[in-house]
Design a binder for these strands. Structure first.
Lengths: 225, 225
DNA sequence: CGGTTATTTGACGGGTATCAAACACCGTGG
DNA sequence: CCACGGTGTTTGATACCCGTCAAATAACCG
């Protein structure tokens, strides 16, 4: 089911990088490969959780949904990233909803097999713990941002986090819809739009999802207000 | 160093509950027991992390600090809870600052010994993963709250989460300072105060840290606005 | 090209933060 | 026992950020 390029992704994923070919073979044998279309739901809050997922292509968001249709995006995962590891230790139910942001391909990994593998090869428990520790750190950073920074500062930090440089000029593409980015940052799309607009005075231009920053250092200074 | 009552706490802690006496002995042999006074710092963001901690008595908060003195409380831990498990998998540095909220006693557990133990007894890796999964869930809930709920709704949910009942009347004590609770909920102390005051029309009275709720169901209804 | 979905922009109102002052609470020491 | 200072809490007045609603514009896709 997996192409050879996709196998490359699997073997490079931090969660599985420590495993030998034979273990990988066992783990992924007959594993379901899913093709999701944009906006298709993978699982909902409260669904029984038997699989964790590795993104092969596209993007998947995890979110909590409020009754009236409002949603709180918790994280967005891209190729090579795994999610829902935690569910297998939380009473076997997913605590969030997973939805494809773009068309996406994923492979599901059996919780049971992974647990069995941990008992045989404890080293991979470290990989799982490291993976979850990473997620924890991301969430902590998110909480910190929302509590301490203004919408403008959050927008700036988002740009800084994604420009891939620490100084000089930079150009890059936004990873997804502005509405989704806004939600990740804990603000409304309109507010995010205005925040970006307010940065045009400081050498930031955003057109059609492409960002160009004249001088990254100037943005860093703006963070202090 | 540990009293027998404190040993009881250790053995009942979910992280260690699966261990036999001999393993516990090895793990805690000569482990540092710390007595912190109120507001004393245990470690800071960026400090090298060699220990994870179990709270024996009192409360400890984890937070991120902004340069100007603002702080974002991530979580508060009480007796029987462990924290900083994640640090040992994140490059060996604490990503947050830990401070005693009240006078507190803790015991530090060696990362190295715990890692060694995982290799010998893989089952305890499950306990660690479960512990981290719990933390993840708490953080997700926190993010959801801040993104989807008004300050008033967050205050109500806090009361509901701590009253220990699902209907009828309830009385209980607030777990700590209102300022700290407010920070946990992502609002200012004044705002929290007003939120509580606004609930007096609905059978909620708070005097001297003691909360009494006439009818929990009424509060649940209030969540919808 | 037309229809749908994103994004922008504007006007407006409300919820929260901020600042400031009064007040309650508590342990300490006189 | 009361005075006292420090800390925590409440309350009020004000400002402003941000969300909401609405409409216009732009981008996208079949």
């Amino acid at each position: 089911m997996l192409t050879s390029k996709e196998w490359d992704i699997v073997t490079r994923t931090t969660l599985f990088a420590s495993l030998g070919p034979e273990d990988l073979e066992k783990l992924f044998d007959k594993s379901p490969v899913l093709a999701l279309r944009r906006n298709q739901q993978l699982f909902s809050e409260g669904d029984p959780a038997n699989l964790l997922f590795l993104v092969l292509d596209g993007q998947v968001k995890l979110s909590r949904l409020a009754p009236e249709g409002a949603e709180a995006v918790v994280h967005v995962f891209g190729p090579g990233e795994t999610f829902a590891e935690a569910a297998m230790f939380m009473g076997g139910r997913y605590p969030v909803t997973a939805t494809a942001v773009t068309a996406a391909r994923l492979v599901g990994v059996s919780n049971e097999r992974l647990k069995a593998l941990v008992l045989v090869k404890p080293e991979i428990a470290f990989a799982m713990l490291a993976s979850m520790a990473r997620h924890l750190k991301v969430l902590v950073a998110q909480i910190e941002q929302m509590k301490l920074l203004t919408t403008r500062q959050r927008a700036i930090r988002f740009l800084l986090d994604h420009c891939g440089r620490t100084g000089g000029a930079a150009t890059f593409a936004l990873p997804h819809d502005k509405a989704l980015i806004a939600n990740r940052l804990g603000m409304k799309a309109e507010t995010f739009s205005r925040a970006l607009a307010s940065l045009s005075d400081y050498g930031v231009a955003v057109v059609g999802g492409k960002v160009s920053i004249e001088d990254v250092n100037r943005l860093v200074l703006l963070l202090d207000d």
